[in-house]
């Protein structure tokens, strides 16, 4: 009898847990668009937000695209995600990790001419950790070394 009650509790609890985890995963799935912190360039290009709406644009800073304007404080660069590219202008102080070929999240508004006007920049670091001694290597070389040292 004691064994039976124990089994009943076990089965009920396992069912409750499965339902609970299912509900949690379903909720997370339903939130997948709302809970995203930024839009990627292909989403912005496919469905441009209203020019007065503040949005976040996130992606990679295109190689060779960072240019300082003649006034010395405005910079322009291109954010891309492999499918689409969005030109961005920003006036202010960029975080120290804001470099070409790395991730960035720009907060601002999309102009109707297709340029993004950012009033704040955040740098996004990716999952690759490479020692500084390897900084003169290309990305492919660095990845190779990382693969060999572990």
């Amino acid at each position: 009898m004691a064994i039976k009650a124990k089994h009943q509790r076990l089965v009920l609890l396992v069912i409750a847990l499965v339902v609970l985890i299912g509900a949690g995963l379903l909720a997370a799935w339903a939130l997948r668009n709302q809970a995203s912190y930024f839009y990627v360039p292909s989403e912005i290009v496919a469905d441009p937000p209203a020019p007065d709406r503040a949005v976040r644009l996130g992606g990679m800073v295109e190689q060779g695209s960072i240019k300082t304007q003649p006034d010395g404080v405005t910079i322009s660069f291109v954010v891309q995600d492999g499918e689409a590219r969005v030109p961005v202008t920003f006036k202010g102080i960029a975080p120290s990790l804001f470099v070409e070929g790395s991730g960035v999240v720009a907060e601002g508004k999309m102009r109707t001419d297709g340029t993004f006007i950012a009033d704040n920049l955040l740098a996004k670091h990716d999952e690759n950790y490479v020692p500084r001694e390897m900084q003169n290597m290309t990305d492919a070389q660095a990845k190779q070394v990382v693969a060999e040292t572990q």
């Binding site: 939130l31 997948r32 995203s36 912190y37 930024f38 990627v40 950790y129 490479v130 990382v146 572990q150």
Partner: peptide, 22 residues
């Protein structure tokens, strides 16, 4: 699941995007 400012995991099952020095 979601775009985030935080990086994705560096260490996943059996492989690491982190150099051995770290």
């Amino acid at each position: 699941w979601w775009n985030s400012l935080h990086q994705p995991p560096s260490i996943t099952m059996g492989k690491s995007a982190m150099s051995g020095a770290f």
